[in-house]
Write a protein that binds this DNA or RNA. Sequence first.
DNA 1: CTAACAAGTTAGATTAAACTAACAAAATAT
DNA 2: ATATTTTGTTAGTTTAATCTAACTTGTTAG
Lengths: 219, 219
Amino acid sequence: MISQTEENYLKALYNLTYLKGEASVNEISKRLEIKMPTVNSMMKKLSEKGFVHYESYKPLKLTEEGKKEAALIIRKHRLTEMYLVEKMGFAWDEVHQIAEQIEHIHSPEFFTKMDQLLGYPTVDPHGSPIPDHNGVMRSESYIFLDTCKTGDAVTLMAVQPSSKELLQYLSAKDLELGTTLTILSIEPFDNSITVNYGNRISEVLSSKVTATLLVRPIS
Amino acid sequence: MISQTEENYLKALYNLTYLKGEASVNEISKRLEIKMPTVNSMMKKLSEKGFVHYESYKPLKLTEEGKKEAALIIRKHRLTEMYLVEKMGFAWDEVHQIAEQIEHIHSPEFFTKMDQLLGYPTVDPHGSPIPDHNGVMRSESYIFLDTCKTGDAVTLMAVQPSSKELLQYLSAKDLELGTTLTILSIEPFDNSITVNYGNRISEVLSSKVTATLLVRPIS
DNA sequence: CTAACAAGTTAGATTAAACTAACAAAATAT
DNA sequence: ATATTTTGTTAGTTTAATCTAACTTGTTAG
Ligand SMILES: [Mn+2]
Ligand SMILES: [Mn+2]
Ligand SMILES: [Mn+2]
Ligand SMILES: [Mn+2]
C-alpha cells in the first residue's frame, strides 16, 4: 500500500524529473516545503519500495514502476481538474487545490466514470496531457511563446506552470486555450511582446507571462 | 485542525449516539474495528479538543460543537452519495465507500457546488436526511416496516442500516425508495411478511429485511 | 587550489495513531 | 453475595512522518 504522503513525493519527483530525467533532494524539499532530512529518509523508503533509484549524493530518479505510479496519480489529478471545470462549472483557476486532494481517492470506478462522462479527454483545463490508464503520457511538441518571432501566428495550447494568479490574469485578458495570437512586435529591452487576438488589437505580455504560454504555430 | 482519523471517530460517535444520546468505548471499537485502548485515548483527545464529554467509566457523549462537526461531515458524505447517484450514474449500492473518502475533502466550494447542482436535496440515496450547512438534521417520523399490520399500505422512505448486500437484494426485487407496498399477510412464526407492490403480486420479505425498511403509512 | 558555501546525510527528538499486556471497574449470572 | 465475564483504563511499544542540530560531501568563487 502506498500512502497519500508517499504519493505526493512521487508526483513531485515525477514533475521535477520530467525534463532533465533527474532531480535533487533539495528541489523536492523546496517544492513540497518539507525539510531536506525528511525528504532524504522518504527517498530511502521509496527506494526500498522500488519506486526510486537512490544512491548517496547522486541525483534522484524514478524507477519504471515509480514513473507509472506517479503518472497514474497525475492522471487522477488532471481528470479531476477536467471534471470540475467541464461538469461542475468551476473556473480553471479554482480546481488545482481540490484536485490535489481528490487525486488520492482510492476508487478505480470513480475515475473511470469521470473519464467516461468527459468522453476520454487527453488534456486538462490548463492544456497539460492526461496520462492514459497505463500511465503513459503523450509528449507535447509545443513551444513557449517567448521563443516566437515577430509576425508569427500561434494558437495557445497550454499554460505551464499554471499558478492561480497567472490563470486569473489570463482570464482577465480573455486569453484562453485555443486563442490564436499574432505577434506584432517584440521589445528588445525586456522581451515583452505586443500581440493581437480576438477583438484585442494590441495587448502587451511581459516575458514572465510569455515564458509560461505553450503555443502551436499555425501551419 | 481536525484530522481525517478524528473525523471518522466523530462520525461513528454521532451515528451511535443518534438514538440513545450516548455510546460506549466498546461500541466505537467494534464499529471502527479499532481496539478499545486506542478508542479510549482518542476519546480523551477529542475531549481535550472540546468535541466529546469524557469521564472515566461513564458513557460517551458529543458536545454541541462535536455534534455540529460530526453532522457537517455526515452532510458531506450524504451530499456526495447523492451526487454520485444523480449526476454520475452510480447505483445506490456503489456509493458508500467512495463517499467514505470524499467526506474528508477540505473545500467548502466543492460541496456547495454539489449541493447547488443537485438542487439542495434533503435526503441521500438511501433515504437518510442530509444535515443543513449549520449541521442541523431534520428528524424523520418514519416507522419500520416490521411494526406495520396486515392491510397497511405504506411508501418506502429509507433503508437503515443500508449494507451493500441489502441494497443489492432490494434492487433485485425492484424495491426502491418511493415504492408503495401493501401488506397482505404476516407469518407469526418468523415475522416474515407477504407484500404486494408495482407488478409484484406476492413477495415475501423476511424480518431481517423488514427491520431495515423505514416507511410512511399512506394517509 | 583552497576557502567558503550549498547540498546531502546522520542522529536523535516529537507527534499521531495504532497495537498488546496487564490491571481495574462494572455488569451479569449463579 | 460472590464469582465470572465484560468493559474500560493504564502503561509501554511500534510505525509513519515530521523536525532540529550537527556533521560530511560536493560545488563554486577567488
Ligand atoms: Mn493541477
Ligand atoms: Mn495531493
Ligand atoms: Mn453512506
Ligand atoms: Mn470516512
